[in-house]
């Protein structure tokens, strides 16, 4: 479904991604894990067109997207939930969801009802200004908004960031549910333990390179990973 071939991304002089290649098959959950500054979010941003790679190619559904602008990818079926709960803080919950249907505005009402079924807490707060929601609710809203465009591939950037353990568990339950419903997911996480539990496959990034790759359970048992990311 998604194929990234040998991309190299620079921030000015800094070589942030070095020959990254990865693949996401249909109906998979693929996780990118690694420490702070390893290049996880950079990879995601390059895929979604917010950053450009100097070399290599990115293809989505057998179409080259390495030069496609970010906003066009939404209608192609790719949804990016950016890091740090980027919601429209001054709009209401409902308006945020309506914005999510910007490129695909048929059946808005049903889609909103679906999102509310999945996230009942949002339903109670539908007329509340999004900026007044709690962190967990904002993350749910960001995911809900992405779902409004009926994505084939959902890319989540650090969905657990800054959330309490209970909320992290809830977010990961939702990821599993979405996967069960047929959505392909590319997940960027610092919380390697949780990510490896849900992921079919995972890539481990270290200073801009892919260091290891394998199935979720393989990596969870690898000594190297245990030492580096899972606390012994």
């Amino acid at each position: 479904m998604l194929r990234v071939d040998n991309i190299n991304v620079y921030y000015g002089q800094i070589h942030a991604l070095k020959d990254i290649s990865l693949e996401v098959q249909e109906h998979e959950i693929v996780a990118l894990i690694g420490a702070n500054g390893a290049g996880k979010s950079t990879t995601l941003r390059t895929i979604s067109g917010l950053l450009r790679s100097k070399t290599g190619s990115i293809s989505f559904l057998n179409e080259d997207i390495s030069r496609t602008e970010a906003y066009k990818l939404v209608s192609k079926g790719m949804a990016h939930v950016p890091e740090g709960r980027r919601i429209f803080l001054q709009m209401t919950v409902l308006e945020n969801l309506e914005m999510g249907a910007y490129v695909n505005s048929t059946n808005i009402k049903e889609d909103i009802a679906d999102v509310f079924d999945r996230f009942p807490r949002l339903k109670h707060r539908r007329n509340q200004i999004a900026g007044t929601l709690s962190g967990g609710e904002q993350q749910m809203l960001a995911i809900g908004r992405a779902l409004m465009s009926h994505p084939k591939l959902l890319m989540l950037d650090e969905p657990s960031m800054g959330l309490s353990p209970i909320l992290v568990q809830q977010i990961f339950d939702i990821i599993k549910e979405l996967h069960a419903a047929g959505t392909t997911i590319l997940l960027v996480e610092q919380n390697a333990e949780m990510a490896l539990q849900v992921a079919d496959r995972a890539y481990v990034l270290e200073s801009g390179r892919i260091k290891l790759t394998g199935t979720g359970s393989e990596l969870a048992q690898s000594d190297e990973i245990k030492k580096a990311y899972l606390g012994g």
């Binding site: 979604s48 917010l50 602008e69 970010a70 906003y71 066009k72 990818l73 939404v74 209608s75 949804a79 990016h80 939930v81 950016p82 980027r86 919601i87 429209f88 803080l89 001054q90 709009m91 308006e95 309506e98 914005m99 999510g100 910007y102 490129v103 960001a142 908004r145 992405a146 409004m148 465009s149």
Partner: peptide
């Protein structure tokens, strides 16, 4: 209008606007 919503969405959060498919 819908375009007006897009404009205010860009003001609110540029990256989020782009991520829902608005051409900033």
């Amino acid at each position: 209008s819908k375009s007006g919503r897009a404009v205010t969405a860009i003001r609110d959060n540029r990256i989020a606007a782009e991520s829902v498919g608005i051409s900033v």
